[in-house]
């Protein structure tokens, strides 16, 4: 399958897709679907033809695994938490709590008990998902291939479905809290009377403000996706080099990546806090 560099790269960026194919669809190997059914895609074309009725098993599986790892670890600590001298693991958890609490305290001034744990979840979850990028690019796909799975992409944040899934959740929360705090009329007024506070300019304001609202989930999702995707592509390109030369580039890039991963997780979290803070505050 991975004969040329282009094919190798394309192969590595293809998700393991489980989706619905219509009856009569001619498959990758020339066989024809006898009836409509769900199956694993055997080629990129098949995955594309599945359309919306498909699931990226690898993305969902690894992101849920990372979420369970995060919550399991923190829940484990929460159960054995002590008010006395904390151990190493509890210390680590408490450091992340204090970090999140401090950025929430700086950016969010209303009272909402959801915001801090939401930010913690976002930060640690995105951090763990992107950190999968540091696993050498061929380890897991080769293992998966040995198990008979054609495609396997382990980093969920290289899949726009994952990043958009989260950012749409954040978007829904901002709309929900805007309506809850300001009321439907207050929210509509805010959309209509900003940035130009004059009745004649309400249509212009509406277009601008609604655009601002809608752009937010896109900017959140695409920023995270773009950064991690680019890093992953660079890792794959490095993997194309001769074996003896790879470490000269992959090691520095991985070290640089150690900086990018927390930074992207932090930016996503910080922007979420800012958006939610704006949802809670009356704008002039």
């Amino acid at each position: 399958m991975a004969d040329t560099p282009v094919e190798y790269i394309k192969h590595h960026l293809q998700n393991l897709t489980y989706g619905k194919l219509e009856a009569g669809y001619e498959r990758f190997d020339g066989s024809v679907m006898s009836e409509t059914g769900w199956t694993f895609a055997r080629s990129a074309q098949e995955a594309a033809d599945m359309g919306f009725m498909a699931v990226h098993v690898d993305t969902l599986g690894w992101s849920i695994a990372m979420g369970v790892l995060f919550l399991g670890l923190f829940r484990f600590v929460a159960k054995r938490v002590t008010t006395g001298v904390p151990g190493g693991l509890q210390n680590m958890v408490e450091i992340s709590f204090e970090f999140i609490e401090s950025i929430v305290r700086d950016g969010f001034h209303a009272r909402n008990p959801i915001i801090a744990p939401l930010s913690l979840t976002l930060f640690v979850w995105i951090l763990l998902m992107s950190a999968l990028d540091l696993v050498p690019v061929d380890f897991i796909p080769t293992l998966a291939q040995a198990m008979g799975l054609e495609y396997f992409k382990i980093v969920p944040s290289v899949d726009p479905n994952a990043t958009f899934g989260i950012s749409i959740g954040v978007f829904a929360l901002t709309i929900f809290y805007s309506l809850k705090v300001k009321g439907a009329f207050g929210f509509a007024k805010e959309l209509g009377m900003n940035p130009f506070n004059h009745w004649a300019l309400i249509p212009v304001n509406l277009v601008l403000e609604i655009l601002v609202q809608i752009v937010r989930p896109f900017s959140l999702a695409l920023r995270l996706f773009g950064n991690i995707y680019a890093s992953e592509v660079v890792f794959i390109l490095i993997a194309l080099l001769p074996l003896w030369a790879q470490w000269t580039l992959s090691v520095p890039w991985a070290i640089f990546h150690l900086l990018i991963i927390p930074l992207q997780a932090f930016i996503f979290t910080m922007l979420t806090i800012v958006y939610l803070a704006q949802a809670h505050e009356e704008q002039h």
């Binding site: 998700n15 009725m53 993305t59 989260i166």
Partner: peptide, 12 residues
Amino acid sequence: NINLTLIGQSIA
């Protein structure tokens, strides 16, 4: 491709 994964991720 944008597909059901998006909704699954939101639920997760």
